[in-house]
């Protein structure tokens, strides 16, 4: 399992090659890349800043991947999340997993992203023509996590 929080960009091809390097048990590699859009809630985004909680972020991501490994038979998993200033078209996050068959790999990759969206301590601040604003958490993210039988807020009280 590899977890990286970094300001610099990543190369998906290089990362996927190294994730499955030398492991002939692997029959499926599934990855997800999240990128910066130039539009959000009907405002033009010129730039965004990603803040995180050093120390907790790495721990939260490790915990998320460990939970995925407990549910599915994975050989390897990788999460790279960028922080700092980003622009539209930039890559933000890469989640990739390897397993023997595609079912586990597809499910685990989606699970890790759904979990990350509501549990990993990252915050986006967007630069719009009306000024800077913090992105609001979406209730659809909680719903996405709920389909895995997890209630968001279980670990983070909304009180």
């Amino acid at each position: 399992m590899t977890i990286r929080v970094q300001t610099q960009d990543f190369d998906v091809g290089t990362e996927l090659a190294s994730l499955r390097a030398g492991d002939a048990r692997v029959g499926a590699v599934v990855s997800f890349v999240g990128t910066v859009r130039d539009m959000n809630e009907s405002a033009t985004i010129s730039e965004m800043e990603l803040e995180h909680y050093p120390g907790m972020t790495e721990k939260a991501l490790e915990d998320i991947v460990a939970q995925a490994k407990a549910r599915w038979e994975l050989f390897n998993a990788l999460v790279i999340h960028r922080v700092g200033p980003l622009k539209p078209l930039d890559q933000i996050v890469l989640v990739a997993v390897t397993s023997a068959h595609r079912g586990a790999a597809f499910a685990a990759c989606e699970f890790i992203m759904d979990y990350l969206k509501t549990q990993a301590p990252f915050w986006k601040k967007e630069q719009t023509p009306q000024g800077a604003r913090w992105v609001d958490a979406r209730s659809t993210d909680d719903q996405a996590l709920a389909k895995w039988g997890i209630v968001s807020g279980k670990n983070g009280s909304p009180s």
């Binding site: 999240g34 990603l50 995180h52 909680y53 907790m56 999340h81 933000i92 996050v93 992203m113 990350l116 969206k117 509501t118 549990q119 990993a120 301590p121 990252f122 915050w123 986006k124 913090w134 992105v135 609001d136 958490a137 983070g156 909304p158």
Partner: peptide
């Protein structure tokens, strides 16, 4: 630590 609901990914 106190913070708003998270918005990464």
């Amino acid at each position: 630590a106190f913070f708003p609901p998270v918005t990464g990914g």
